[in-house]
Design a protein around this nucleic acid. Sequence first.
DNA 1: TGGGGTTAT
DNA 2: ATAACCC
Length: 470
Amino acid sequence: MRPGLRSPAASLGVNEKGGADGGQGRTEARGGGGLRVVPEGSSSSRVIVHVDLDCFYAQVEMISNPELKGKPLGVQQKYLVVTCNYEARKLGVKKLMNVRDAKEKCPQLVLVNGEDLTRYREMSYKVTELLEEFSPVVERLGFDENFVDLTEMVEKRLQQLQSDELSALTGSGHVYNNQYINLHDIVHIRLLVGSQIAAEMREAMYNQLGLTGCAGVASNKLLAKLVSGIFKPNQQTVLLPESSQVLIQSLSHVKEMPGIGYKTAKRLEALGISSVLDLQTFSPKILEKELGISVAQRIQKLSFGEDNSPVTPSGPPQSFSEEDSFKKCSSEVEAKNKIEELLASLLNRVCQDGRKPHTIRLIIRRYSSENHCSRESRQCPIPSHVIQKLGTGNCDVMTPMVDILMKLFRNMVNVKMPFHLTLLSVCLCNLKALNTAKKGTIDYYLTPSLSTTSRSGKRSFKMKDSHMED
DNA sequence: TGGGGTTAT
DNA sequence: ATAACCC
């Protein structure tokens, strides 16, 4: 059963060649309502979809353990319920709710620990890869959201369309603001075809991965993202341009605009700007002086629903990191143990990825009553002889890397003085495809992993543990 | 507030 | 190295 998923997309795909205009151009709306042919590429209007999985971590947990289905479920990290399924939401549990409060609100709440992100990360990339099959231009936003630029795909489908099929064209899912659809308007047509593709994407996600989610289709990322959240869960919505202003004006505060975060919202508040209309009508010059030209111009355009930022293909990750938060870490030995644990997991991940990190970073958070958000970091290059050992089996790569990390640690923390940390994080970044050693060069033949070593599958890096018996 | 990510300065 | 943004 799939509540909320709309009827399958009208079949558009496999028609004979030709299309309405013989493939030489596109039909475009004219004032009088008729269709005319315009040259390729004359329209700059894009079709973007934002795909947003429903309570992603909870869905992954319910797939792992189907007995959880139907019960109110929360995913716990430390003392927080970071997300929960809709059964739990009906009973008053909210995202990022304290475990105490959640249990009080909902005593039957089932909690699973979600501090290890491995399965979520893996499922997340399966979703992105599935979407990339539709069109390669997919941008990830967190683990549970993706943007896809459908412009080209829509164009291709329109070229396959017979002119008599145009009059019968239907979209899929909801139309925002219940707006009237004008089939003589090429922009409407393109967005409707986008909504059909969005429906196919959600269908594929469900059939192949067992995941449900929402989608929003619009002419840019901002609007696609805003409109995807209108009907939830497991539904989709298309925004036609005439309703853009209704959508953005429906936001009750500028902080709800993606791109305006906590800091900027505070600064806007200080200028007396709280509504979207306030931001639209505020003096651009003064805004530029207060926020800098870059932020000012960008967010003021956002307030009009304008967003020309491209969908940037995410590709493989730029960095791998693991972190752990805790009440208190106040000794070097304690820190070293935690750092070793973080690093061991990271080395397994980076080993499976195949690329090699050239930079390592250590991040800490110090205890403090105020400003609890701030972190400090130190980074350094990974020595080339260590890089080469990465992924090459039995060599102990832990020891040199832990040594580096502890040097970074002592650079940040004066271990001769009392300290109190609440978070440690290790990040491997500056990932490079291989060795950069080119074939035929001296380096190539001097690089053991390139010509001689056979690549075996996964190996795991064990933490050395003196208490462990063989 | 967790355990991640990204880009800009 | 930090600060801002996103989830």
